[in-house]
Simulated scan of single mutants.
Amino acid sequence: MNAPSFITVGDGTRLAYRFDGQADKPVLMLSNSIGTTMAMWDPQIASLSENFYILRYDARGHGASDAPAGAYSLDRLGHDVVELLDALHLDRVHFLGISLGGFVGQWLGIYAPQRLDKLILANTSAYLGPSPQWNERIRQLQTSPDMAAVAENFLGNWFSADFMRRRPDTIEIFRAMLLTTPPQGLAGSFAAVRDTDLRRTATLIDLPVLIIAGQYDTVTALSHSEALAALLPQARLKVLPVVHLSNIERPVEFVAWVREFLR
Rank of each mutant, 00 (worst) to 15 (best):
D24Y: 10
V104M: 14
H94W: 06
H79S: 05
A191Y: 08
S33T: 15
E136N: 10
D11A: 03
L240M: 08
S33I: 11
S189C: 13
R200Y: 09
L77H: 12
H244T: 04
N2E: 14
Q215W: 04
I138N: 11
Q106T: 07
I110R: 06
P145Q: 10
M147R: 07
A213I: 00
I45H: 09
T143W: 00
E50Q: 14
S33V: 08
L30I: 07
E253V: 12
E50R: 13
R259P: 00
L48E: 05
S223Q: 10
H89K: 09
F163A: 04
L119V: 07
W134G: 07
M40N: 07
L204N: 14
R175H: 07
L141W: 11
Q106N: 05
Q22D: 15
F19P: 01
G188A: 06
A69I: 03
D20R: 09
A148N: 05
T124V: 12
F261G: 02
L207W: 04
S73Q: 05
T37S: 15
R194A: 07
R139V: 03
I45D: 03
G105V: 02
G12I: 08
A64S: 08
F163S: 10
M147I: 12
V93E: 14
F52N: 11
L74A: 10
L88A: 14
A46Q: 13
S33G: 15
L210V: 08
L96S: 06
R175Q: 11
R200V: 15
E260Y: 15
G61P: 00
Q22N: 15
G70D: 09
A122H: 03
H79F: 02
L222M: 04
D195H: 12
A112Y: 11
A69W: 00
T170R: 01
M38G: 13
L240G: 02
R250E: 15
P4V: 04
L96M: 14
N157Q: 12
Q215C: 05
M1L: 01
L74S: 04
A126C: 13
L207N: 09
Y57M: 15
Y57A: 12
A151Q: 01
G97Q: 02
A161F: 03
L178H: 12
S33P: 02
D91C: 02
V27C: 14
V258N: 10
I45K: 04
F154C: 10
M177P: 06
V9G: 07
D86M: 00
L90S: 02
L30C: 03
T143K: 06
I110K: 07
L245N: 09
A67M: 08
F261S: 01
I110N: 12
N123W: 00
S189P: 02
A227G: 04
Q142L: 05
D146I: 11
G78K: 13
L222R: 04
P68N: 05
I110A: 09
E260L: 15
L90K: 03
A161E: 14
G78R: 13
A59G: 04
L178Q: 13
L119R: 01
A16P: 02
A148P: 00
R200Q: 15
D146M: 10
F261P: 00
L100W: 14
L28R: 07
K118M: 03
T203Y: 01
W158V: 06
H224G: 01
V209I: 10
A176C: 03
L204Y: 07
L228V: 10
L155M: 11
S65T: 10
Q44W: 11
H62N: 03
G185V: 09
L198M: 06
L228P: 02
